[in-house]
């Protein structure tokens, strides 16, 4: 019988969405042009050559190594690209993804990447042409809502702040803005440098849509443990209890 990863427990929409994110089987919601994604990332001008840190692997004469023979290099590694990043800030008010699930998505589905997880930002580093692909995949898919999530290389403050009145996540550097036409526009790159032109990122999700697609447990959405006085444990809690108990007992008596 072929192994089928289960990824995550629970029968709530949050559990189901978490499984979807981890599996990589995610819905595509929009199509932001590659050149626009590259411009927002801000590492190279769209259309410019990739900077490299070493010659293409084929020209380097790699040593006779069984691991190298088993693992095909990513396009970026094969070309010798430098390592660059994209970093996301996801609002706690029902953003579709949350830092650990962006990381799990990356670690499971993106070859040659290095995810880093914090509370207010989540970074993935990879060879430049690879990270561009991974970033576009995030931008285009249901893991991202253009109002509740944004790419922020620095000054990321905002994930836990109240939303702006128009539903946008707070961003000190105002890298995105809500247009009069109801579309969200990127006006600055990841680190806050103004773009040559505004980039249309499309419409934000409605609150109902964000709640449907979110991976965060919240008391006013899908609670993980019910509410005060009305406890009802999601399977995620039972899993966590199990893991914690095993780890604690193993420390006392490793077997």
């Amino acid at each position: 019988m072929a192994y089928k990863p289960q990824f995550y427990p629970g029968s709530t929409s949050v559990g189901i969405n978490r499984r979807k994110h981890m599996s990589g089987n995610i819905d595509k919601l929009r199509d932001i042009p590659e050149a626009d994604v590259v411009a927002i990332m801000g590492h190279r001008a769209p259309g410019a050559d990739y900077a490299s840190t070493h010659p293409p692997l084929k020209e380097m004469g790699e040593p006779d190594c069984p691991v190298r023979q088993l693992v095909a290099p990513t396009a970026g590694a094969a070309a010798g690209d430098r390592v660059r990043y994209s970093q996301w800030t996801d609002s706690m008010y029902f953003a579709p993804s949350i830092p650990y699930f962006r990381s799990y998505w990356g670690a499971i589905n993106c070859k040659g990447c290095d995810p880093g997880t914090l509370s207010g930002r989540q970074i993935i580093e990879a060879r430049e042409r690879d990270i561009e692909d991974y970033t576009k995949a995030q931008y285009d898919s249901e893991v991202t809502d253009v109002a509740l999530c944004s790419m922020r290389g620095c000054t990321v403050h905002g994930h836990s702040l109240r939303l702006e009145e128009n539903g946008m996540q707070f961003d000190m550097l105002a890298r995105t803005e809500m247009g009069a036409d109801g579309n969200v526009y990127a006006v600055k790159d990841q680190v806050g440098i103004p773009l040559d032109k505004k980039i249309n990122l499309g419409k934000a999700m409605s609150e109902a849509e964000a709640k449907k697609r979110t991976t965060i447990f919240r008391f006013d959405g899908v609670p993980m443990g019910g509410k005060v006085g009305e406890r009802k444990f999601d399977e995620a809690i039972e899993m966590t209890h199990h893991m914690w108990e095993r780890r604690s007992k193993w420390g006392y008596r490793p077997e």
Partner: peptide, 21 residues
């Protein structure tokens, strides 16, 4: 201390985020 660590794991699981690295 055991309660401390369980809280950390539950918190991370609830919100998909915890603290810095």
């Amino acid at each position: 201390l055991a309660g401390w660590y369980l809280s950390m794991l539950l918190h991370k699981e609830a919100w998909g985020r915890l603290g810095f690295f």
